[in-house]
C-alpha cells in the first residue's frame, strides 16, 4: 500500500466515509507498518485544525436581515422592467424611436447616446460611493441610484434638459445623506 492509498483510507475513516472492508484493510496496514501510524496522526492533526478553524467562524448577528434587505433593495427596481409584459408598449416605442432616429440622422448627437453616457456616469458614481460604504449601509444608497436611473429612463423620452435637474437632485440627496462628502 503506497502513501496515497493509505492516506485516502485514513481520510475516509476520519470523515466517517470508510466501508467495512476498507476499515479492515486500514487496521491491518496500520498494524503492519509503524510509519503509517505517523501518517494517521498527521491526518488527524490536520482534521483538528480544520475543526478548530471552522468552530471559530460565527456568522455575524443580523446577517440574514442585512442580506435580505440588501438583495431585495437591489432586486425590486429591476422587477419593474419586465420586458415581456411591456411587449406592446415597447413595439410602439420602437416605432417612434425609429422615426426619431431617421430625423436625427443628419449627424447630430442623439438624445439616447447622451443618456447612455449619463447612465454610465451614474453607475460609475454609484460604484465609487458604494465601495466606500460598509455593506450594511449600501442597500439604501443603491436603491437611491436605481430610482434615479429609472427616472432618467422616463425623462429620456420626454426632455433631455430634465437630466441635469435629476442629477443635481441626486447629488444633493447624496450630500445630505452622507455628510462630510465633498461635492463631486
Amino acid at each position: 500500500m503506497n502513501d496515497e492509498q493509505i492516506r485516502i483510507l485514513i481520510q475516509a475513516e476520519l470523515a466517517g466515509e470508510i466501508r467495512p472492508e476498507q476499515e479492515a484493510e486500514l487496521q491491518q496496514a496500520l498494524a503492519e507498518n509503524p510509519d503509517f501510524q505517523a501518517i494517521y496522526d498527521e491526518e488527524r492533526r490536520l482534521g483538528r485544525l480544520f475543526a478548530t478553524d471552522r468552530a471559530s467562524i460565527e456568522p455575524p448577528a443580523g446577517l440574514h436581515e442585512r442580506v435580505c434587505a440588501g438583495v431585495l433593495a437591489r432586486a425590486t427596481p429591476r422587477r419593474r422592467f419586465e420586458f415581456s409584459r411591456l411587449g406592446p408598449v415597447l413595439a410602439i416605442a420602437a416605432s417612434i424611436l425609429l422615426v426619431m432616429g431617421v430625423s436625427f440622422w443628419s449627424g447630430r448627437r442623439s438624445t439616447s447616446a447622451g443618456a447612455d453616457e449619463t447612465r454610465h456616469g451614474i453607475l460609475e458614481r454609484r460604484d465609487q460611493i458604494v465601495r466606500e460604504l460598509p455593506a450594511a449601509d449600501r442597500a439604501p444608497v443603491e436603491a437611491l441610484f436605481e430610482r434615479a436611473l429609472e427616472r432618467l429612463a422616463e425623462s429620456d423620452a420626454r426632455h433631455e434638459t430634465e437630466t441635469g435637474r435629476i442629477l443635481e437632485e441626486l447629488e444633493n440627496e447624496i450630500n445630505r445623506r452622507l455628510p462630510g462628502r465633498s461635492p463631486r
Binding site: 471552522r54 467562524i57 456568522p59 440574514h64 435580505c68 438583495v71
Partner: peptide, 21 residues
Amino acid sequence: ERAFRGIVELYGSRIYTLVSG
C-alpha cells in the same frame, strides 16, 4: 419575498461558513 427570506434563513449561515473557508 417571504420565500426568499425563508431561503436566506435556511442557508444564509451555511453559505457564510462556506465562504469564510
